[in-house]
Design a protein around this nucleic acid. Sequence first.
DNA 1: CGGTCACCGTGACAACGGTCACAGCGCTCG
DNA 2: CGAGCGCTGTGACCGTTGTCACGGTGACCG
Lengths: 239, 239
Amino acid sequence: MKAPYGLDICENCQACTVREQRLICNLPDRALAEFNAAKFATVYPKGAVLFVEGQQPMGVFVVCSGRVKLYGTSADGKTYVLQIAEPGDVLGLSAVVSGRACEANAETLEPSHITMLKRADFLRLLATHAEMSFRTSQLLALTCHRAHRQASAIGLAQSAREKLARFLLDSCERAGETTDAGIRVRLLLTHAEIGEIIGTSRETVTRLLGQLRKEGVIAVRRSTIVVRDRDALTGNVHS
Amino acid sequence: MKAPYGLDICENCQACTVREQRLICNLPDRALAEFNAAKFATVYPKGAVLFVEGQQPMGVFVVCSGRVKLYGTSADGKTYVLQIAEPGDVLGLSAVVSGRACEANAETLEPSHITMLKRADFLRLLATHAEMSFRTSQLLALTCHRAHRQASAIGLAQSAREKLARFLLDSCERAGETTDAGIRVRLLLTHAEIGEIIGTSRETVTRLLGQLRKEGVIAVRRSTIVVRDRDALTGNVHS
DNA sequence: CGGTCACCGTGACAACGGTCACAGCGCTCG
DNA sequence: CGAGCGCTGTGACCGTTGTCACGGTGACCG
């Protein structure tokens, strides 16, 4: 089945039903049925744009598989990455609830399964099902949390090295895997993208990563980084 | 009547009942009665600490009058201001709803009337009154909005001048008063505090404000600033 | 009325990092 | 298999800005 723009519609694929639970867990059957009846589950190719900043929010987007880049742009074309959304994350929630325009652009980094619920349908669910409303509050609270953490991470860091250290520590905490050699994490990001996340230039990211590697703090192979000396990174954050 | 720590308890003062409406507007009478029965309305002196980062959230705080500084600190003592809360703002909401530790410190900048609702009482209200839950979602969505705006304002600005320009424009939008001479706004902040908000040093704030004054873009008298050439500021933001 | 304190203003200087320019390298695709 | 392209790595340069140091001014207070 084909949606507009040649997108494949994904009919209740396993990924979607599993991951959506983070938004709709513990819903009574009637609400769940409503959700399923109204949702659009589609699979987007790499580089697809879900929404752009300034636009009235179309609805909420649940990432079922893949990764979605959330970023803002300044007038001179610079981009600043707010978040790399992963399966289970919900996008557009704050815009839909507050009724304001979207404050960011969303673009898939990989082919991704996304289920969408139109604004009107979502608000109806909110109004009629208390659990949905409470769950939404919790998700929004988490989003606030993350946004504040990111703001203070950037605001409090005085050197680029410190920003990078914070970013690496954050990545480890989210997706790290502890091995005997250290904490291993796959960063599927280019140096340029890391630069956009931590607010510095690509060259600086390259230089700093090289520096850390020389110092033996991290080891790099392909897109996986092994943090061998975690304390050295946290030490950077302090000083 | 005296609360612990020698604080005055404010019994249904005009300010509180009026301003709280932004959280509890359109509540049915029963919910309102519950809110009023459970709330603690106290007046804090200047410099009082409502909560500190890392602490489990005690409850939600509604600012009825005065101003409250929300800030984070880094290990080396640097502080970064997230928000200056004004009457009608609600603090601690995200921490209470998500159940995580507070991510910031809150400190009054002036003698302030604050009404507090303990976490358990607030959550009970949330669970039993759908309107309260929806209203909370909306407030959280606005908070997300503001956090994102601030994050991108800092992340996208490359020069200190641009950050200051953004800050001034934001201030005008929030509290500005249009006159024939320009937009007048009272900034009850020291240069050091502005520096902490936009992530730069006090000296730079002083220098940039002096520069803008020389260029005729703004006029300064006491703590009020008149933006005479708004376009010059927005122009800074772009380039 | 002199002392103290908080805040503003300013100069000198070093360094961090953005920018430009270019080279190497691995991938894809015709 | 060579061309093209995107990503990484590196050197040179210089502007912005943080830091230190100090002086000035107004408010408050004993």
